[in-house]
């Protein structure tokens, strides 16, 4: 097991009191907490700091940690022979765990010691990243979790957990899903915990999701906007023919009902095509001539509102 110097991580002397430890931790939490920090390695730093505080804030764990002796950070070590009897209780294999598990295991024992009734399993949380297509159609993903489980004596062990999770169709970015009963195992008849999934959906080059609705840009040429046209619109469920009516303005939204995200219960969002009028940047002589002719023939004033408002 590799030694970690928790005091150094928090930047406090070994004889620091509980109050100093809390103060030092709070300061570092404000600096490195991923919700507030802009530092690049904030998450990693915060994990280190959190692990150190988790042990040092608890007098029993701190005493146990102090008994491990002084080593330099990163040094391979084993707890002294009598350590296990004093703090570890029953058998504990030191080979497959690290320092955090060791003290995490103590928390489990403290929590369960003296309790005889059922103890519910812990809830787990995991992040899941989906492509747009997976979110639209639903997907089966493989999830690898490292679960810390406690046996009947409250001893901790690390158990790798692999499962396939079926994600329903129509999940959106930022959504949470629940997998009942797939958290930590309950003890003595306690219910098993749940697994919560934090869903992140990758952005798509064409579609932008807004809940179950989808938005996309629909570029049309000026003459298509004036005369109207039929366009072949890509939608997540396949290409459809969309009628752009004559006189369509830029910024107008054309709605394709029920063409957004769909859920198994039948709820569906719409797909909105946001009209953009785009002009060719390269025109040949004939086209330029035609535009000039149009300009001469048209009395259309696109800035009529300017005159009204400034009169």
């Amino acid at each position: 097991m590799k030694y970690k110097d928790y005091y150094a991580v928090l930047g406090v002397p070994r004889e620091a009191n509980e109050d100093d430890i809390k103060k030092a931790y709070r300061k570092l939490a404000r600096k490195y907490h991923p919700d507030v920090s802009k530092e690049t390695d904030a998450e990693e730093k915060f994990k280190e700091v959190g692990e150190a505080y988790e042990t040092l804030k608890d007098p029993e764990k701190r005493a146990a940690y102090d008994q491990l002796g002084r080593h330099s950070a990163g040094e391979e070590f084993r707890p002294p022979p009598d350590w296990q009897q004093s703090f570890g209780g029953a058998q504990f294999s030191f080979d497959d765990i690290d320092l955090a598990d060791l003290f995490g295991g103590m928390a489990g024992r403290q929590g369960t010691r003296g309790r005889t009734g059922p103890i519910p399993g812990a809830d787990y949380e995991a992040g899941v990243r989906l492509t747009f297509e997976q979110a639209y159609a639903g997907a089966e993903i493989e999830l690898d979790l490292m679960a810390v489980e406690y046996d009947e004596q409250g001893m901790a062990r690390r158990v790798p957990h692999r499962m396939k999770v079926r994600i329903p169709s129509g999940v959106t970015d930022g959504q949470k899903l629940r997998v009942p009963g797939k958290g930590g195992k309950g003890l003595r008849g306690g219910r098993d915990g749940d697994l919560y999934l934090d869903i992140a959906v990758e952005s798509h080059p064409l579609y932008r999701a807004d809940g179950l609705d989808l938005h996309m840009d629909l570029p049309v040429a000026p003459w298509e906007a004036v005369l109207g046209t039929n366009v072949q619109m890509p939608t997540p469920a396949g290409t459809v023919s969309l009628k752009v009516p004559p006189g369509t303005r830029a910024g107008q939204k054309l709605r394709l009902a029920g063409r957004g995200f769909k859920r198994a219960d039948g709820t569906a969002g719409h797909l909105y095509a946001n009209v953009q009028i785009v002009v060719p940047t390269v025109v040949d002589d004939r086209q330029r001539e035609l535009f000039r002719e149009l300009a001469g023939a048209s009395s259309f004033n696109p800035r009529a509102q300017f005159e009204q408002e400034t009169r």
């Binding site: 499962m163 009942p180 797939k182």
Partner: peptide, 13 residues
């Protein structure tokens, strides 16, 4: 074999 489980919407819980 790997167990397959269903994720459900919170509002369906």
């Amino acid at each position: 074999s790997i167990e397959t489980v269903e994720a459900i919407y919170l509002e369906h819980s």
